[in-house]
Nucleic acid binder design. Structure first.
Lengths: 200, 200
DNA sequence: GTCTATATGCAGATAGAC
DNA sequence: GTCTATCTGCATATAGAC
């Protein structure tokens, strides 16, 4: 039916605009234009900008989280799991290059909501933390606490995306093709880097 | 004279507000309140919000860059230099915890201006790049290209700051004291992590 | 230099016809 | 469900008195 189609068009348009400009930078007018409708109709389907934003934001996140949980609850050694997480994360980022910045903005705008959402989705860091600690005790990996490993891992994955406009200019003569090549190398480089750092 | 004092007060207030809320989120009214004056006077000293923002932003960056250049142009082995850069960067971040997010926002808002500013200040990555490549050829460090090493390094340093609202909740039961302890450990953990990963 | 008052413009949201 | 027209509020910026 046509009502569903319009709603879908709005969600799609909101996705594009929000992800590029963030909640503050996005304009309802632009979303309406992108969807080929007018502002009034936006508010007919979504009472407020805030509501539309949350729908979009948590819609995207919902696609990322299950994959991560699957990896951690599955079988395999810790290094293998780390490798799988890097691969999963990184390929998701490559397909959604503006996601990291998007998430970071929301982390600082409404952390409680985001934190609650992750819990609701069953993303449980304590489980991973125990896994790390056990591996350290067993001597499989070098001494490190989970928060440090987590910060290192996420930082390395995410940095090339949030820094892209500057990095591409400064390190790749502003050549987007070269930068995409660089991004594609990240998965291998990061897993190798981490393994060298962690495995005794 | 009193005009200088007022201008200084404005700059100080703008520092505080911009760094917390970014260019988009900051309000001229709030800056005026913080400085103990009114909006009209803001515009007397700074023609526009944009102008005031740039003054603040590049004022802060100007304090960080010289230290980095000094390290790279100085004597010492590559690992020592990396260790020094991590220390310099990290202590700067600890004193300016909202700087990373601030910079990231600007990277995406006006990358050309930022890129040009860094060049003007003499921050030259080609020099560092050659240093890395030489060390790789000599076999002092493992095979890695400069952009990858750079992304890894900056990512690890910066992540705990831009992710703090979420990380603190999820990994430290929202205890700010524990999180500050964690931040203080970063310098040592990162340099150790990098050395293990890079040195053969 | 500093203020009060006001202009200007824009963005989110609503009213109401069709 | 979809539109045009409009309201409301807020933020930047300016005018003009002191």
């Amino acid at each position: 039916m046509s009502s569903d189609t319009t709603k879908e068009k709005i969600i799609q348009a909101a996705n594009d605009v929000f992800i590029l400009k963030g909640m503050d930078g996005a304009r309802m007018q632009e979303i309406a234009d992108e969807a080929g409708i007018n502002k009034a109709l936006l508010h007919y389907y979504f009472h407020s900008k805030e509501q539309l934003f949350k729908e979009v934001f948590y819609g995207i996140l919902s696609k990322l989280i299950p994959g991560l949980i699957l990896i951690f609850k599955g079988e395999g050694s810790l290094p293998d799991k780390i490798e799988a997480v890097v691969a999963e994360y990184d390929s998701f980022m490559f397909r959604n290059p503006f996601l990291p910045q998007f998430v970071i903005r929301e982390i600082n705008r409404d952390p409680d909501q985001l934190s609650g959402f992750m819990s609701d989705k069953g993303l449980d860091f304590e489980l991973v933390e125990k896994m790390i600690n056990k591996a350290v005790e067993a001597g499989t990996i070098r001494q490190i606490t989970f928060p440090h490993l987590f910060a290192n891992l996420i930082g390395m994955i995410v940095m090339p995306y949030i820094g892209r406009p500057l990095f591409q200019r400064k390190l790749f003569k502003n050549d987007p093709v070269k930068y995409d090549e660089f991004l594609r190398e990240r998965r291998v480089v990061i897993t190798y880097f981490i393994k060298q750092a962690m495995i005794c």
